[in-house]
Write a protein that binds this DNA or RNA. Sequence first.
DNA 1: TAGATTGTTAATCGATTAACAATC
DNA 2: TAGATTGTTAATCGATTAACAATC
Lengths: 217, 217
Amino acid sequence: MSVGDVTTTNGGPERLSLGVAARLARYLQVLTQAKKEGKETVSSQELSEWTHVNSTQIRRDLSGFGKFGKRGVGYNVDSLVSQIRKILRTAGQHNIALFGAGHLGKAIASSDIFADHGFRVVAIFDANPKKVGTKVGQQTVRAVDDLRQTVLDEDIVVAVLAVPTTAAQPLADELVDAGVKIIFNYSEALLQVPPEVTVHTSSPAVDLLYALYFYLT
Amino acid sequence: MSVGDVTTTNGGPERLSLGVAARLARYLQVLTQAKKEGKETVSSQELSEWTHVNSTQIRRDLSGFGKFGKRGVGYNVDSLVSQIRKILRTAGQHNIALFGAGHLGKAIASSDIFADHGFRVVAIFDANPKKVGTKVGQQTVRAVDDLRQTVLDEDIVVAVLAVPTTAAQPLADELVDAGVKIIFNYSEALLQVPPEVTVHTSSPAVDLLYALYFYLT
DNA sequence: TAGATTGTTAATCGATTAACAATC
DNA sequence: TAGATTGTTAATCGATTAACAATC
């Protein structure tokens, strides 16, 4: 936030607004999948159908950072992916610790969703001594006692909580203490953390309630 | 949308805006959890901390439908839950079909997240014949051949897809054909459906990218 | 009463959209 | 060239917030 940082190469704002950042992340996700499916070019119209964001808004969001598209053709998937990664500063690798080696933990560990965006699960923990030492994917399950040391050694910024609701708050306290900055909470617990830590609580039921409302009305 | 429907008891709008509906669903989720944790009263400030929605906005959203709070005290959790349920018209039970009896499917079936909001998993399907007939929670896994009949018999409006990415589109086509109106997609596939069907694709990586951006800047 | 928190106003800011010239 | 789609403008609409009187 120092004055020296104000000048950016593209003349854009120093920091993205919440809305723009959220939408860019969304575009990135569908572009990544489109790339997997072999698509080379996308139009703002196609992106709109996949993201439910208005196509004018998409062109507007992107044109704020450069002229990435070709008129009459659309956007090159590959180059748009790298442009958005650059804007979101998520071009690098980021290390994740996963807590809970139950069904949900295993589902997350074996999924591509995080890996596709440079998030690598580098450690899996479980409170159950019987699970410690077993293999989940390529990782050996660790005891929660090792939390502090692992967070330091592996440079972990993000913790994903796939644990029972009652276990979530005590674990969050330990994570905050160990220096984790982002907690992705799959439990239902209402976590209390200091302001410098970000908690995101997954809430599929919220999305469903929302979808249902517009179906019912 | 007929003229006769315009008059509502509270004088509010006929249909909620997207933003209001999304926020109300969010409030409902944390209120439901707060109730579980034994809280009887919440202030707009507390709701704000849990939902990351500005407290003024919360009071504004709620006051559009009535005077639910007590000055100097806050909102009664129980009564606010029922008020919001009434507004969102989700006071009743809704039947869900779950597709995929892998780790993710099992995690969803054993979770409270949907049950807490009146969503009941009434059928679980899997493409693997070896899994058909086995028990997951209280349900017996069914073959996908039974899809059409089950959707009709069980009055299913919502389908939750916890299947491999390649299986998602063919399955979505069958679901649309069988009359399902809301598809909750946990795969990475970019689903194509007719406009009258709503697809919501779960995207934890999007939320993580977003959180990370604000951490890095 | 004193303290706390709601309900509401008024002002601002950003998101959204239609429309269309530019151009591939 | 003809068709398609971007980049951009201009106008509108809704979201957001600070502030504070009302009142529990």
